[in-house]
Design a protein around this nucleic acid. Structure first.
Lengths: 118, 118, 118, 118
DNA sequence: GTGGTCTAGACCACC
DNA sequence: GTGGTCTAGACCACG
């Protein structure tokens, strides 16, 4: 379920965070779904439990999951989790367009490129 | 001339690299232009010469500049340095669109967003 | 394991790079082998960790090793690392033969010399 | 007449030295030929006269040319200048073969490669 | 403990 | 003066 690249320069915990966000955005994980325990996730992707723990903490602090002590971690009841993930994407679009502007690439050029290729 | 954010989490040397790429892409730096010496750039942005040296080495290895020992560093004679920078941008667009696809955001959605905002 | 000549005019970091290439070419280091940490190698050959770091970076950028931050450096899974090293040797043969041609030494002459001496 | 690559990592003075050795080895420059003055050579290849001066000093110390104060520099009367250049080439062959041995490339392999390509 | 980045300074070859 | 290399340290993120 989780796609982790241990060799990547992106920290593993960030990859874990992003994976869960993706599953939420796609609707695979929905409100009150239980996600695997820290230990199980750690075993599944062969990383240190501390790393998974850190990822879960971040997901919790960002409102994606809630923790019930002794029970486990669950997807939050926020209805707009999806749009929250989208917002992050849009933020990256903004950054990219900002850089384009700096080097005189017009938004039309980017749009044309996307239309052509995707 | 160079915009460096010493507090950014992006390494200073990468920022230096990007700054020169931007200047090249904008046509401000052209073929055979001499860029400031390692020491001068270091002084200008108040960082250690080694950091600038690292940036220049990367620019050289990527073909943006050439080095004449004892003389200085010069913009390379590749005619398409500009398109080279653009390629890097397009690569980032590709990555972004790839992630969009993963979470079911259509390219139309992105295009609409860009059209609206930029 | 590593043969370094601190007095040589060849930079230490290049010697380190070459040493690892040699160990790979000889099959002593194979896929996914862990190589000593930056600090350990530095201690072993009595040089500054930065020097070793530089060598490892080059090996990584040339595809010989991959780095897992916080874990260490490992021999890459490219099956033909050996032939990669050979290619470098052949490139040098090409250069040498090119110079021979410039001063009218025939390839036969070189071959005869090699046969005689090696 | 001289082929100099100002961008090369090989010091310019070494390139000058090698160029004259090449011209001698090819028989283009023969005993008692006058070679261009330091200034003329410097002008021709657009480098600092000091650099040419250094090259001439080396050529003189290695016995390739002799200097007559106020007159200029001349090719030496050593009959075996050619074989001297060849010796240097052979030395490089030796080095290369040494490295081949270290990584288990046989001399036969090298010979086969040369026969094929040259 | 591991690599990644950076500083402060040094010495060298080259020009 | 210029880049190339190196040392001796330091701090940080990651696991």
């Amino acid at each position: 379920m989780l796609q982790i690249d241990l060799k990547s320069r992106i920290p593993i915990y960030e990859q874990i965070v992003y994976n869960f966000k993706r599953l939420i955005a796609k609707g695979i994980l929905v409100e009150n779904d239980k996600i695997p325990s820290v230990r199980d996730t750690a075993k599944e992707i062969s990383v240190n439990p501390n790393t998974v723990q850190k990822a879960y903490k971040i997901l919790e602090s960002e409102g994606y999951i809630y923790t019930v002590a002794g029970k486990g971690n669950f997807i939050n009841n926020v209805d707009d989790l999806k749009s929250k993930v989208k917002e992050e994407i849009y933020l990256r679009v903004d950054q990219l367009m900002g850089e384009c502007k700096k080097i005189d690439i017009s938004s039309n050029e980017i749009i044309k490129y996307i239309k052509n290729k995707f």
